[in-house]
Design a protein around this nucleic acid. Sequence first.
DNA 1: AATTTGGTTCTGTTTTTACCGAACCAGTTA
DNA 2: TAACTGGTTCGGTAAAAACAGAACCAAATT
Lengths: 152, 152
Amino acid sequence: MGVHIETREQLAPLAARIIATLVLKGRKGETFENLVCELNASKSTIFTHLTTLQASNRITYYTKPGDRKKYFILSPNAWVQSMDEMIKNWNEERDIHLEIVNYKKDINKSLPEDSDEVFDLNFHYEYLNYLEQATVLMQNLRKKLIENHKNE
Amino acid sequence: MGVHIETREQLAPLAARIIATLVLKGRKGETFENLVCELNASKSTIFTHLTTLQASNRITYYTKPGDRKKYFILSPNAWVQSMDEMIKNWNEERDIHLEIVNYKKDINKSLPEDSDEVFDLNFHYEYLNYLEQATVLMQNLRKKLIENHKNE
DNA sequence: AATTTGGTTCTGTTTTTACCGAACCAGTTA
DNA sequence: TAACTGGTTCGGTAAAAACAGAACCAAATT
């Protein structure tokens, strides 16, 4: 599991394993100390990873009254985050392709119709089409799931 | 663009820039030599990246009769590849969550109903639901786009 | 007031990644 | 057959990523 998270979320091995243990631990969470000894890593490493994971909204913590310890848990809306990430990426990609299309159109204009230097834009159009449709689907799914979630 | 590809496709900087230049070059493709001097990198580096990119089906090449050079181009079905990757990832993720659910169910069985050690499985169910729906949507879109593509 | 607990900061060290250069090889051309 | 072209292999290096250790700090305990 650690490895999977590591590649998919592009995290350092240990950061991924923190996530993995939090997934397994569930809503009870895990303390700083336990993470250190369970993953037998150094306090400093765990600390820096915990802070970056918090910064990227992947985890949070809660505290118990009369207890200085922080109990770290996964951010509750993992799938929303995951979808938002995906949509953001698709949009970035779309923007890049749009830029390229414009750039190539410009060049094509300055060439004779039959020149074999003329760019074929079809590739980009197909890709843009895919991105567009995927984004719409994902946004709808997002809305729908959020609705469902509220009504529980 | 290089940077975007680098992070999104998890490639080495130079591999990403190869992709980027191929995207810009389009159908005509780019030769080994040109890549070397355009990206001012060493032959060996370009070579190894070209081979791994071919191995991962991201690029191919064609040859001209009476010309020893290889003209490298992007694999024509980039969006299909991209979707397949995504679906594969979602399936892996689903399998992991299913395993965890089983594991947690097992533990829950051996605990009294009201124990606060009991795992809350809702998180996993929601996530599985998301994965399931996303996968179905993406598979449908895949089918649809492939149909469209054939009829051109 | 001293010590402990839980956490934080800073400065290395180790490991991995990304890349380069030189030597090499199989066809092709002169 | 010598030299060139286009590509391939291998050994090594430089830089970045991941992690560790020790020192440190503030709040709580003793």
